[in-house]
Amino acid sequence: MAAGGDHGSPDSYRSPLASRYASPEMCFVFSDRYKFRTWRQLWLWLAEAEQTLGLPITDEQIQEMKSNLENIDFKMAAEEEKRLRHDVMAHVHTFGHCCPKAAGIIHLGATSCYVGDNTDLIILRNALDLLLPKLARVISRLADFAKERASLPTLGFTHFQPAQLTTVGKRCCLWIQDLCMDLQNLKRVRDDLRFRGVKGTTGTQASFLQLFEGDDHKVEQLDKMVTEKAGFKRAFIITGQTYTRKVDIEVLSVLASLGASVHKICTDIRLLANLKEMEEPFEKQQIGSSAMPYKRNPMRSERCCSLARHLMTLVMDPLQTASVQWFERTLDDSANRRICLAEAFLTADTILNTLQNISEGLVVYPKVIERRIRQELPFMATENIIMAMVKAGGSRQDCHEKIRVLSQQAASVVKQEGGDNDLIERIQVDAYFSPIHSQLDHLLDPSSFTGRASQQVQRFLEEEVYPLLKPYESVMKVKAELCL
């Protein structure tokens, strides 16, 4: 049975990233139509530049190519590739079939990587351009969430054990800070992308030097003109047959890092959902379990974690691919890159769409948070109580021993009897502590235990987050809708 299948058929496997999760716009960027249309555009740009620099290419040939950029006979191309065992030459023939007058000058002087690699770089750039505003929107939604809850005390956790208090907004800023680093890295790697350009079979530009009869300047002009037509500021000066596969490492490393950030955020949300302090959106008709109707599973956060793990592992592909590119190139890269580049971007696209949807509907339960604080705060307040007693004339050592005994009794009630923490009640009825009984409410005010959390939130948002989001103001209103 021949390899390949009808990918629109229910009898043929289709990647869930495309069929179930990723956005239509990201799927289109990695589609065959987008790819092969870009090949034709690159052939047109090459012909236009070659004509401008004096090669015998007519206006009629150029116009014929322009008129057929979208006229792609995919069936013919597939048949040609089956016959020739070469995808680029299959599309040269297919393009030439609908451009008979231009057929002889299509791909003039070029090698397969002229269309293959340059198209990949265009796709990487455009895919990054799709991700950047999506990530900015996630940051914006979380920034709104953090600002609104900047002063809401909550129990902090280290080692997932109760620690000092923080605020809900401050905790959210930990998430935002990681995503801001990801946004900066995505922008950097996007701006650092260079075009492969017009380089020939081993990167020496020998074929173009021959076409222009040894004119170095025209060869350099050709490279520059096509690079500018493709919208790049610069091209690699040095290439082998391909652009260095280190570029793929750079791009997928940034995406993998984004995956790590999203995994951490969504894990926190899942843990908070278990504590009943916070939940992701839950639709009115949504079913959490087929057997347990009360369940409210954090399905979206779980999906993000599941896909983020996949995204983090994909960076190993370009690392290994770059390491086995012998001399000017081997074909070890080809099949692998067809999979890992598309999957990385479709996965990143999915987790950003999902995280935006989550961040637009996060639900906080202040009463649950308050109750958990009441359970733990008495123990945390013991040092403040000791200091207040010393100020009232008591002995630190005597007070410490009193607190120690009462704390152990209260802990026994919590752990052995399943009761509430009654340390404060014990202190309130103990005559030894009568000098500070009137101060206990103040000493137990949760806001006095959150330090500068709310001020940190305000400063972080104003100095770091809002300036970073400013270039994306025009796209901030787009909502994230999930079908599944």
Rank of each mutant, 00 (worst) to 15 (best):
H159L: 03
L319V: 08
L352E: 11
L341P: 10
R329L: 01
Q428H: 12
Q458M: 15
I351P: 01
N421P: 10
K284Q: 09
I358W: 05
Q356R: 12
D317W: 04
T244Y: 01
V115N: 09
P471A: 14
V92C: 08
R452W: 11
R371W: 00
V29R: 05
S395Y: 05
F379L: 06
G54S: 09
K295S: 03
C172F: 04
E360R: 03
V315R: 04
T119Y: 09
A392Y: 06
C399D: 10
M380V: 01
G203M: 00
A78Y: 08
R303M: 10
E343M: 02
A342Q: 10
G418R: 07
L311Y: 09
Y472G: 14
S359N: 06
Q397P: 05
A2Q: 13
I369C: 11
F460T: 12
E220P: 01
G288V: 01
K391Y: 12
R234F: 06
G361Q: 04
E328Y: 10
S301L: 08
R374F: 03
I436D: 04
E481L: 12
E228C: 13
I424T: 12
P471C: 14
G54W: 03
S334N: 12
I403K: 10
F208H: 07
G240C: 02
P10L: 13
S412E: 13
V168H: 09
D191H: 07
L469I: 14
R14F: 14
G394L: 05
G4K: 14
F160R: 03
L179F: 08
F208R: 02
L443H: 05
E279I: 03
K75W: 15
Y294T: 00
Q164A: 14
M278V: 09
V414S: 09
E462L: 13
P10Q: 14
F282E: 08
F449W: 08
K415M: 10
A47W: 02
R137M: 12
E250V: 08
E80N: 06
A3T: 14
E360F: 07
A146N: 15
E343G: 13
D59Y: 12
G259P: 07
M389G: 11
T204A: 10
L440A: 11
E70K: 04
C173T: 05
P318F: 07
I269W: 11
L174W: 11
Q356V: 03
F232E: 00
R196T: 04
V262P: 02
C180R: 05
H86A: 03
P378F: 06
L272V: 08
K101S: 07
Q184W: 12
N297H: 00
T166Q: 00
L352F: 15
L186R: 03
E213R: 14
R33L: 10
I123C: 13
A127I: 07
E417D: 13
E302W: 00
D182N: 05
R303K: 10
A163E: 07
A3Y: 11
Q184E: 15
L314D: 02
K229N: 04
T330D: 00
R329E: 00
T350A: 12
F28H: 12
I265T: 11
R20S: 00
I122G: 01
Q286T: 01
V168I: 07
F327D: 00
F327Y: 13
V189T: 15
R20Q: 05
F195V: 07
V251I: 10
D223N: 09
V138G: 10
T204D: 10
L362Y: 04
Q41C: 13
L130Y: 10
C266G: 08
Q325H: 13
E277K: 02
E425R: 12
